[in-house]
């Protein structure tokens, strides 16, 4: 057992600052355990959101030592290993979202963004009973994106939102993953590329892969979702030769139907 110093951000929408705490850390504890212990010992009114404590609900997102992380999945021994000797472990709320209180942020804007994306529009059913037939190979790619737990760490670390607050012009990595899951689905017939280019601002992503690095579900956000969507936007808006080629070969309509 060892005494560990913490610096936890406390405040609300009006402002706040870091407050120092100290608590015992034992083997196997995660950051969320430490926060709960601090709540119990010295700050009963310290607010933090949590639910499953198993890395599946995406509630306890915060920034630990400056890295956006799930507090329930970050072991204290790993945190202490990266913390300089004598320095406190810092915990702060996600910077890209408005603070409600202490470590709790208002992530509701994300659900509004989601409503702007064209929903799933399947082709006509394959069978008379109203069902479809799909090949596993065709849905493998999409299934990676379905692992998302909506912790919004990717939105938090994305510098377009975090540093430049372009929430109205850029939907962010989480929703590019969501759009990719719809866009690449073998049954979907909707075309979202024009919206991705204009209203959803995919061009704001400059591929720094910060979102991929923080994803607790290890979704390869940049390489498997965002870049393929960028390429689909190129197909439709920036590649006249490709368009001509598809038109000559009569695959343009097919490509449109596909998308």
């Amino acid at each position: 057992m060892a005494k560990v110093d913490f610096k936890i951000w406390r405040g609300d929408a009006k402002g706040g600052g870091y407050q120092d705490f100290s608590t015992d850390v034992t083997e196997g504890m995660v950051v969320l355990d430490s926060v709960h212990q601090i709540q119990a010992e010295s700050a009963n009114d310290l607010a933090c959101r949590w639910n499953c404590k198993a890395g599946k609900c995406g509630s306890c997102s915060a920034e630990v030592n400056g890295h956006p992380r799930l507090m329930c999945m970050m072991r204290m021994d790993e945190v202490l290993a990266e913390t300089p000797k004598g320095a406190p472990v810092t915990i702060q709320p996600m910077k890209a979202f408005p603070v409600v209180k202490d470590l709790v942020t208002d992530v509701s804007s994300n659900f509004e963004i989601k409503k702007k994306i064209k929903p799933f529009k399947p082709r006509k059913p394959d069978a008379e009973d109203g069902t479809w037939r799909m090949v596993q190979e065709d849905v493998d790619r999409v299934q990676e994106f379905r692992k998302c737990i909506e912790c919004f760490l990717c939105q938090d670390v994305c510098h377009v939102l975090r540093e430049h607050s372009l929430h109205d012009e850029f939907i962010g990595p989480r929703f590019l993953v969501y759009a990719a899951a719809l866009e690449m689905h073998p049954l979907d017939t909707e075309d979202r590329t024009t919206e991705l280019k204009n209203a959803h601002g995919i061009g704001y992503c400059n591929i720094t892969k910060c979102c991929t690095n923080v994803c607790p579900e290890h979704i390869t956000i940049t390489d498997n979702a965002i870049i393929p969507l960028k390429e689909r936007v190129v197909d439709k808006h920036y590649d006249p030769l490709g368009k001509l080629w598809r038109w000559i070969h009569g695959t343009e309509k097919e490509a449109n139907d596909q998308q």
């Binding site: 920034e63 400056g66 890295h67 956006p68 670390v157 510098h159 377009v160 975090r162 540093e163 430049h164 372009l166 012009e169 601002g201 995919i202 061009g203 704001y204 992503c205 400059n206 720094t208 910060c210 690095n213 923080v214």
Partner: peptide
């Protein structure tokens, strides 16, 4: 733009590859 993840940038304006 950014110099690394979660590190503040030197400029306020940003156009990315959108423009």
């Amino acid at each position: 733009d950014p110099i690394n993840c979660s590190v503040s940038e030197p400029r306020d304006n940003y156009r990315g590859e959108q423009k």
